[in-house]
Design a protein around this nucleic acid. Sequence first.
DNA 1: CGGCTGATTGATCCCGGTCAAATGAGGTGG
DNA 2: CCACCTCATTTGACCGGGATCAATCAGCCG
Lengths: 248, 248
Amino acid sequence: MRVQGSEAGLAQAVIRRFNILRPLSVEAIAALEQAILEGLFRAGAGEDLTAEGEPVDSVRLLLSGWLFRHKTLEDGRRQIVNFVLPGETCDAYAYLLKTLDHSVTTATSVAYAEIKRARFEKLIASDRSLAEAFMCETLLGSAIQREWAINLGRRAALERVAHLFCEVYERLRPVGLVDGNSCSFPVTQMDLADATGLSVVHLNRTIQELRASGLITLRERTLTINDLDALKNAALVSPNYLQAYRRD
Amino acid sequence: MRVQGSEAGLAQAVIRRFNILRPLSVEAIAALEQAILEGLFRAGAGEDLTAEGEPVDSVRLLLSGWLFRHKTLEDGRRQIVNFVLPGETCDAYAYLLKTLDHSVTTATSVAYAEIKRARFEKLIASDRSLAEAFMCETLLGSAIQREWAINLGRRAALERVAHLFCEVYERLRPVGLVDGNSCSFPVTQMDLADATGLSVVHLNRTIQELRASGLITLRERTLTINDLDALKNAALVSPNYLQAYRRD
DNA sequence: CGGCTGATTGATCCCGGTCAAATGAGGTGG
DNA sequence: CCACCTCATTTGACCGGGATCAATCAGCCG
């Protein structure tokens, strides 16, 4: 759905995030904001934005709400391979590949900007820092993806879930979406199970264990981390994979 | 170890691969080859090329041999998150990030080219297709990484191992390293276990199961796939994630 | 009120982990 | 040439984390 009317402020998460990845000039920020406002869209929860096997010809920037990237095996087993959080780029440069290898679906209702390939290339040609920021988006995504590999391959259930909570929290923080020690966590347990490679039943029991230990509260789509250090400890969080958030 | 003397032909795998990712002009190929020959190195098996937490200031192209990318938890649990096969790029653009999130180690003795950041930026600035090819390398790496997530999260042991065999085979094929239905597979079972998220013991039993079913032969560091379709079937191979190899 | 989706609980089972030991296959020095 | 060491592969026995199956409960919406 195309968005009508004035929507100032919507681009804030993106600009905030990009500005951390690469310090942007005033002109670059204006250009980015301009490109965003030219192609504002909204979608409801549970809608597919792109499906595996399709070609893509544009770049999307998530302004609000959550998306997830997922893949499904023939027999229905599904793996959520990553979330896309507000301010993050959906598929920078992906038009270079023939088709998409995974699907992207909305977890909540969302607002996003769609920048067509030609427009995107003009944008990144206009400013070196912008191009580098988009590049960093891609590289950071890869780093997160690698961390998910060790999460799925080597961490036990409790560690896995704890790790996911820590990661989401740390990814939401720099864009200003953490309030005290709480953040929105608008994902069903079924989705969470598919993100952690667990069954729904066992995921539920794992969450209860985390609740019982007092580390977290998860109620009404809100995650509260009562003791971040303890949770990180329980999750065996790796220190280096989100470092690009830190500015020099 | 810096390589002395003439080493023509070493760059073949890289050029072959890049040419599939993006059709390259004669000049682009020459420029790429030139950059490669300027910084040839060799290393023995079991050497660390880069360690997690280090900054990187150059791009590496693997000419021969295998590398693996891996991460380790505090308590020693290790996950190999990907292999780097001949012709593949090690860390294009990674100098944009502060530090590396994972380590890269040689699985065999290797030859590689190291291109310093400034030299690399000059190279990609000189030719659009080259820049896009490097970009494709990064994107393809992400796609493979996502496939590893569903492999680790949702496939059973036998499917997982079968999938890895299929993937490696298909990644080696376009660079000419598949001979009939065989390819080199110079990785210990310990490494293979860490790549598939299994214990060595169970990995060993899984391989024996694959051998017993006649699908593969794995002997003396050589993998032979006796029935590729059957193996892909057993692995529930996804169709779209290596598609960039196919040219339009 | 009935249907639907998501969260929770209980009981049972099995895939894959762990522990321990044996077998092979180089490599090396006496 | 053999004794010995190291590293990789293999086998056996046992156990437990997490899957599976099934039922119940709690909101929410029409």
